[in-house]
């Protein structure tokens, strides 16, 4: 080996040396790190497939067993059944997008390459959020069309996306899909652990579902309505389904946004200040 080979071509070195690392570099780096992992492709794909498959199975089950339809049967809500399963898998993705970096130690490489931690956090957050948004919308829209096609095939009532109530639910659920996965991302930063992040984020998500029916209406109205999942559900499905735990949509939005801001804000501060 000759010593001269170690230095790069000096032209490259000088040109590169003048370039300061910017937000786009970080975003591109995070994308090429995350998108090339098979685990990413698998979890996002699995979340999508599981959502659509659940909806399909539910619609087939309904179609083959039910004969008469109560007037409050909603083909839109029915086709969105798969969201509950998709969100679990997407939350796993959100947590692991960052907890994997702590488990493997690559976070130290990331922060050595770009020590501007605030920007690194924002780039990661924006990237994971965008990927989840695309996956979420693709899932809810596919669930909707698959659900309507199957329900129609069994001669059941169907809905159209041209109906504003249907659109609000389908697109709303798609846009809302990253909500818990991003909270999972934030918990992944705070706990630096896959298990801790997933448990906490899904716990927060499922809490009202687990205890909701067991407690008094006033407790549902005054306490459970302040949990983030009920705030979210109010906005996406409160106009179709009613529950004492659902506050007014505006209140729901404020409740959900507050939870989100507090948890993500805490993760941001931890990411910027704590030892890596």
């Amino acid at each position: 080996m000759t010593t001269a080979t170690i230095s790069s071509n000096s032209k490259i070195a000088t040109r590169a040396a003048t370039r300061r690392t910017g937000f786009i570099d970080i975003l591109a780096s995070e994308w090429s790190k995350l998108a090339t992992l098979r685990a990413t492709q698998l979890t996002l794909g699995l979340g999508f497939l599981l959502s659509v498959a659940t909806t399909a199975i539910a619609c087939i089950a309904l179609g083959t067993t039910q004969d008469d339809w109560s007037p409050d049967f909603s083909p839109v809500t029915t086709s969105m059944i798969g969201v509950a399963f998709g969100v679990i898998v997407f939350t796993v993705f959100g947590v692991m997008a960052v907890s994997r970096e702590y488990a493997s130690g690559t976070i130290r490489l990331t922060l050595t390459a770009t020590p501007a931690r605030g920007r690194v956090f924002l780039a990661k957050f924006a990237l994971v959020g965008t990927m989840l948004l695309v996956a979420g919308l693709a899932s809810t829209i596919s669930m909707f069309y698959a659900g309507q096609a199957l329900l129609g095939a069994y001669g059941m009532p169907t809905a159209s996306l041209a109906d504003p109530d249907a659109a609000r639910m389908v697109l709303g659920l798609g846009v809302a899909m990253p909500f818990f996965p991003l909270i999972g991302f934030a918990f992944g930063v705070l706990f630096r652990s896959t298990a801790g992040g997933i448990t906490t984020a899904l716990g927060l998500h499922w809490l009202p579902q687990i205890f909701g029916q067991l407690v008094s209406e006033s407790f549902q109205e005054n306490v459970l309505s302040l949990l983030p999942s009920n705030g979210m559900d109010t906005m996406t499905s409160g106009h179709i389904q009613h529950s004492p735990a659902f506050p007014d949509p505006m209140v729901g939005a404020v409740v959900a946004a507050t939870w989100f801001a507090v948890i993500v804000g805490a993760a941001y501060l931890a990411f910027v200040r704590r030892d890596a």
Partner: peptide, 30 residues
Amino acid sequence: LLDAKAANGGHTARQHLGWIARAGGIPAGR
């Protein structure tokens, strides 16, 4: 070089160095 094993086992050597280079604003050819 602190911890040589800090890497994603699913990445290839080129992919691994690729994302680091990108984060550092270094041309891919390097």
